[in-house]
Structures are given as structure tokens and as C-alpha cells.
Amino acid sequence: MSDSVSENQETNDSLQSFQSMSLNDAGEATHEQENSHKCDKQKIDILLKPTGNAPIMKKKKWTVEGDKPISWIAEFMKRYMKLEPNEKLFLYVNQTFAPSPDQIMKNLYDCYSTEGKLVLHYCKTPAWG
């Protein structure tokens, strides 16, 4: 138990530094996020699972802020796995549907989390539907 907590702590830090990178990249879009409601700053635990031909991520458990959109998570994962910019990454919830790129983590967590975690499956080619 204590192991997984510390892992989350550590990964959280690296996500934070990535966030500051993307702040410089995307002016307008992140400005909107800064204004968003306080409750969305709630931290969300996510579990990333590869499917099909997707590369495995060394760290599967991450903690992200609730107001982060799916497109942000996908960009982060692409950089983490060192995918080419033109390579695609598809994320799925419940192994059923691909959430909208502007869907925020808090909404997904509120609707589709199990045992306190939001499970996202990812792959490089469309998997479900």
C-alpha cells in the first residue's frame, strides 16, 4: 500500500513539470483551464492499460488534476512513450467508447471510475467502434 502511494507521489511530480511545459505551448486553451472551478482541481487517480499493439508504459498509475482534458492526457502519453508526432493514440473508457478530446478527467471519473480509479485503455489503432 505504502509503495503505491509513494509511486503516485513521484509520478505526480513529473506530471506537474509536464503541465508547465504545456502551459507555454498552448496559450488560450490553458488560460481557460486556469479559470475553471476550484472543485476541478481535485486530484484523480488514473490507471493506463495498453491494448492491441500499444507500447507498455512503465508507470501505469498516475494522478492528474480533474480539469485536465483527454487531449492533454493523450499528448502527455505520446511524449512519455516517445511516439512520433504523426502517430496516433486512442484512449477508451470502459473498453467501449472514446471520450471527447475536450472531456475533462473529473467528468469521466465521476461517471466511470471503479474502486476510486479511472481506467483508460489505450492503443495506436482504433479498438472499440
Binding site: 498552448a26 488560450e28 473508457v93 470502459n94 467501449t96 467508447f97 472514446a98 471527447s100 475536450d102 482504433p126
Partner: peptide
């Protein structure tokens, strides 16, 4: 940085179908 590219109508269609599936999950 503000809106997504849709490139073609298939993109819109797959977005639409994804919403529909999500609704059916609920």
C-alpha cells in the same frame, strides 16, 4: 490551440458515434 481539426466528415461521424456509445453506456 482552441479548436480541433475535423479534416473530414468521417471525423465528425466517429465523434458522433462515440458520444452515442457513451450515452448507451449510461
Amino acid at each position: 490551440n482552441q479548436i480541433y481539426r475535423f479534416s473530414n466528415k468521417e471525423t465528425v461521424e466517429s465523434y458522433f458515434m462515440a458520444c452515442l456509445k457513451e450515452a448507451d453506456v449510461l
